[in-house]
Design a protein around this nucleic acid. Structure first.
Lengths: 344, 344
DNA sequence: AGTTGCTGCTTAATCGATTTAGCGATAAGT
DNA sequence: ACTTATCGCTAAATCGATTAAGCAGCAACT
């Protein structure tokens, strides 16, 4: 039942375990092991199906070939898809992934970081929560390979990979104006999450660039802690409070989903009575009638960049910081098409 | 930068590492260590924030406190949600989760199993692909703690946790008949996946129980390997081929999604022109207009049961087999409501 | 002959915990 | 006084790999 160890190979080959280790680590040349012996060991290794014991190796070298992935919610469309590709890409480099969800809860995030440290993961992919700064700083100080995902911490220079939130939201707002919509509202959350702020900033910047200004009452911030029902009610009240509202932008997909429910409850027709755009794509947006226009994140590119940056950290221990900002794409669907005139 | 080891504590407490190990493993009484020494060690351990090195411990004990989770597709709604709760529950027992997606590809599944074995996970949660029998049998033979998820292998008695596919589909069919629908069709896939077979069986059983029989032409099996577009076309052709079709049942959520697109393309109104039920719930089903009636799986219960069964295996090495079949719930929405009469 | 250098390997320490076997000291029993 | 038992702890082996240090054996050179 036991696995084959380096000793077993050594015994059968009539050499010492050291020699076996050298050969199997590709140091045969460097350590001047004869071709004869090398070949014999290699042959034995495949014959016996030798698999190095990662624990023993890890204990000695301090490397576990494992990376920790901390996301906001693995059940969320965006993170689940990122997790999938991250796993596939990591696997190509011989790494396995341990994951966990923070639910955007600081204590959970701290707990996850602690467990991952204690499990001695070699590198971290982290979607930081608000106020996680100190812990990230500690990791950075300990020179742990790390990449932030989806968000960054403005006061701490680190590697990160994220979408261009500002541009995505800017494009969405501009698009609505180009289509001729007049009264455009925006719905976001109260959270301090940087990516939400940037999306709002992008939206507002576009409004200011093409319009005289943006009235505060066209902006709704939902409580981050509210329940689903409360949020839907809030959105309904908000929509009703604005006369002649003809377009609405949601800064993330779950808000967009609430928005759909709210609009439906109010008996309004998306695309007809009100134009609708959400940040992030979702099956629902694609299949809803009409399709929901959205700002889509390049999930595959994000995941691949994350691994690339992390592998770079893992292999070359440079001090160089990689900050990757990928473009968002506006996916145009039926939810905003009513007007044709270019009003910009 | 190094962690605190048992030696450090031993040195500071003026005792041997052995004693420290005994105390920290709760064997103080058993090994007759005095309360004085015990307390001193415990105090030092918390003071120094001692965290046992899992690699060293694992190397010695053969336990990694890690479990492997193999799903069909971590990005899929069902599996992503299961993965989330599995992680949370496993964490309560001190276990971490390594995951991977098979894409229902045998080779990928084999690869994942190999990596997990080689990483020495303590237990496995596996969504088996077709033809994975030999590998599962090997794990079973090696007495590895293991639970199958979502499916089982008919020829191999193992632990598993899944929904009652037969009953869920039976209920759905019966419900359609109760509502008075006459011409009810079913769409499934050609795959040998056992859960799909059981769903079809449940559907057919209900039809046979209440009707004279079920004509073969009312059953459509889609190629598992077909593209999205091909599948949608197939469904459209199928629907058109049946005169007076008034209800349709899809055996899984992605088929249901194709179905929605097909029906939409044909210009039919779900709930009006055709009743619609899908196995598995989805955001889209909840939010579509009208809502799509579905057979919903108790995801939380499934995930919790999986961990419970696995922990049981991990702790008591009994030979007892746990096969948990949880009830599916019919979630009634607007997609089947046209007729009122009870025709059964 | 004696030194040096190279080749091709091995010895032994090490990573940090667990665990078996056992040791010294005191107390109890005969 | 001498054996035996109990208490409270420790020494050392072990898990499986990596790696610094070093050792024969032979050739070449002075």
């Amino acid at each position: 039942m036991k696995g084959v160890s380096i000793k077993d190979i050594a015994k059968q080959a009539g050499v010492s375990p050291t020699t076996v280790s050298f050969v199997l680590n590709g140091k045969a040349k460097e350590k001047r092991i004869s071709d004869q012996v090398s070949k014999k060991i290699l042959k034995l290794a495949t014959k016996l199906k030798y698999k190095p014991n990662q624990l023993a190796r890890g204990l000695r070298t301090g490397k576990t070939k494992t990376i920790g992935l901390i996301v906001e919610d693995i059940a969320n469309h965006f993170f689940a898809n990122v997790a999938k590709i991250v796993e596939e890409e990591a696997d190509k480099f011989g790494y396995k992934v341990l994951y966990g969800s923070t639910e955007d809860n600081l204590q959970k995030a701290k707990g996850l970081l602690e467990v991952l440290e204690y499990r001695q993961v070699d590198g971290y992919i982290i979607t930081p929560t608000v106020n996680l700064d100190k812990d990230i700083e500690a990791l950075k100080h300990a020179r742990k390979p790390m990449v932030l995902l989806d968000r960054y911490l403005p006061h701490i220079p680190t590697n990160y990979v994220m979408v261009n939130n500002f541009q995505g939201a800017y494009d969405a707002a501009e698009y609505l104006m180009q289509l001729g919509y007049e009264k455009i509202a925006v719905v976001t959350i109260t959270s301090e999450q940087i990516q939400m702020k940037e999306r709002l900033d992008g939206f507002l910047a576009a409004m200011k660039a093409h319009r005289s200004g943006f009235p505060r009452k066209m902006l709704k911030k939902l409580a981050f802690t509210a329940t689903r029902e409360e949020n839907i009610e809030e959105i309904k009240t908000f929509i009703k409070s604005i006369p002649n509202l003809d377009a609405i932008f949601f800064t993330t997909n779950y808000l967009g989903i609430y928005g759909i429910e709210a609009v439906k409850d109010l008996g309004l027709q998306i695309g007809e009575d009100i134009a609708f755009i959400s940040f992030d794509d979702h099956d629902l947006f694609r299949l809803y009638s009409p399709g929901i226009t959205c700002v889509s994140q390049p999930i595959g590119d994000i995941a691949r960049s994350v691994i690339q940056v992390l592998m770079n950290e893992l292999n070359n221990n440079t001090n160089q910081i990689n900050q990757v900002v990928l473009p968002a794409t506006l996916v145009k669907r039926g939810s905003c098409s009513k007007k044709a005139a270019s009003k910009i």
